[in-house]
Design a binder for these strands. Structure first.
Length: 492
RNA sequence: CGGGAUGUAGCGUAGCCCGGUUAUCGCGCCUGGUUUGGGACCAGGAGGUCGCAAGUUCGAAUCUUGCCAUCCCGACCA
């Protein structure tokens, strides 16, 4: 009956899987590498979408929707991008099934129904979108073009993990076109800021903004900016990316505009995205051995009220009082669930809602009503307090705020404690193995050195932090001169 | 995609090596009752293509082969 959770110390990966499945966020499906997002997990995603969507619109973007299928000829137009994704594409080759003549209960692919041109299932939508933009953009008056789409994409991953890396996942992808390079770069950075703000303020996960090295850059981009977060096992996780695409896609898809002087030029592009992977980040940044811990600002349910009955006659009294509290909380915009299901007892509910990470639990029994109080328990610290029913709702609103702050501060302290400088190779390797987290070290700037470090240690350069301080030093591996430190980590 | 492991009711499992009645147990579920401040108790009951498919055999959860899915390690990956 008790849902036993693996502890983080015993097996971190298993702990994560347990939380996702037993916490009711998602399930495995019959399709390799694909998950079913369950209502509780999807409600979380919807709350994330709602805030992000609002932020995109505030920064001038509009939503649109482009097809799932990309004709192969379009897909291959931007060579670097196509090459980067080629190994993980799902491809549609036929458009019809027919009854197997040898077995009437089976269907087979109809060999007569082969497509003239294969369709690629989008691993990302640059190709189909830039092909479309060609028809939308003629003049500088059509710019900037600021479009976002919420969609699913497919990347045929060999090794998958719920939320962190699945063959199909949900995301948003912004695709913008601009008249000048400066404006496109500004857009790239602006959207990175939007992501950082969202992840820090709503998900309560601190991030480091930075730029990727050439090796780690998005295929087809000039620059890839990213936000990097740190998980409790000391591994880094890329939480979002924003790309400055230069004129690469404009040239590949021949998207030109005339400026005020009637001279033709290719437009400048950006693209940026975050995915359901963020849910994985959320889980691994905050949760504990008792279960999930949801940040109040995006929690599917912020408050749960559990009645503690004592005899039949107590039910109507408690229900009435609870419903009063529900009404007051709702009036202040708090999402609240009153669980008066009599099939499970209070203790069971307490454990269940802790597993699900609901930020605040209110327990209410006759004893409390006599004293005009309720028992309020916060998920992040498990602290319990008796609080007066008079003026309870505003107190809970404040508490939700405190919890949001507290889990952010906790994650921030953890993260900051795990950004360590290494000044020698031995120190670097030792830190990676014994402490984990981000290691700030000098690097000679070459792809070869980066590659060698990765081979030796599995650590990659997560990013070159924005506004990085410049200082002279020598590369941790090659000993060659370096002008700044970069952040290394083992990563998801 | 390579190596290893796993798959028996919603969940966790026994049985498998050494083939042989009606597939074990706990939780959950249903009915009734007693209960309710940290995963309640009593009584009765329902629930199974033993992952899927072929093969060996008089007989397969058990042996063989193929396939599917999951987990771990590796390669790969924005």
């Amino acid at each position: 009956m008790a849902k036993e959770l693996t502890t983080r110390a015993a097996d971190y990966s298993q702990w994560y899987n347990d939380l996702v499945i037993k916490g009711g966020l998602a399930d495995h499906s019959a399709v390799r590498g694909c998950m079913v997002i369950k209502p509780y997990g999807y409600a979380l995603w919807e709350n994330m979408q709602k805030e992000l969507d609002r932020m995109f619109k505030e920064t001038g973007h509009e939503n649109a929707y482009f097809p799932l299928f990309v004709p192969k000829s379009l897909f291959e137009a931007e060579e670097k991008n196509a090459e980067g994704f080629a190994k993980e594409c799902a491809i549609v080759t036929h458009y019809r099934l027919k009854t197997d003549p040898d077995n009437k209960s089976k269907l087979i692919v109809d060999p007569e129904a082969k497509l003239e041109e294969e369709l690629i299932i989008r691993p990302t939508s640059e190709a189909i979108i830039w092909n479309t933009y060609k028809g939308w953009i003629q003049s500088y008056r059509d710019l900037p073009l600021l479009i976002n789409q919420w969609a699913n994409v497919v990347r045929w991953e060999m090794r998958t993990r719920l939320f962190l890396r699945t063959a199909e996942f949900l995301w948003q992808e912004g695709h913008t076109a601009h008249a000048t390079k400066e404006e496109a770069v500004e857009e790239t950075k602006k959207m990175l800021d939007v992501y950082a703000t969202f992840v820090e303020e709503f998900m309560a996960v601190p991030v480091i903004k930075g730029v990727k090295t050439a090796n780690e850059r998005f295929a087809g981009a000039e620059d890839t900016y990213c936000i990097e977060a740190l998980m409790q096992d000391g591994k880094a996780l890329q939480a979002g990316t924003s790309h400055f695409l230069g004129q690469n896609f404009a040239k590949a898809f021949d998207v030109k505009f005339s400026d005020k002087n009637n001279t033709l030029d290719y437009v400048w592009a950006t693209s940026w995205g975050v995915s359901t992977r963020l849910i994985g980040a959320l889980i691994m940044a905050h949760s504990d051995d008792q279960g999930l811990i949801m940040p109040p600002k995006i929690a599917p349910v912020q408050v749960v009220i559990v009645p503690v009955y004592k005899g039949e006659e107590s039910k109507p009294v408690i229900d009435a009082k609870a419903n009063e509290i529900v009404k007051q909380l709702k009036a202040l915009g708090v999402s609240v669930k009153y669980d008066n299901n009599d099939n499970s007892r209070p203790g069971w509910k307490f454990a269940e809602y802790e597993l699900k990470g609901i930020p605040v639990r209110v327990a209410l029994g006759l004893r409390d009503i006599e004293n005009n109080v309720v028992e309020v328990a916060r998920r992040d610290t498990k602290e319990k307090n008796s609080i007066s029913i008079d003026g309870l709702a505003p107190v809970i609103v404040q508490l939700l705020d405190d919890i949001q702050q507290n889990i952010y501060n906790r994650a921030l302290a953890f993260r900051n404690d795990r950004i360590t400088e290494a000044n020698s190779w031995d120190e670097f390797v030792q830190l990676l193995d014994e402490k984990g987290g981000f290691i700030s070290a000098h690097w000679d700037g070459t792809g070869e050195t980066e590659e060698t470090i990765k081979e030796k240690t599995k650590a990659t350069i997560r990013c070159i932090p924005l506004n990085n301080k410049h200082e002279d030093g020598v590369c941790i591996l090659s000993g060659k001169p370096s002008t700044q430190r970069v952040l290394f980590a083992r990563a998801y």
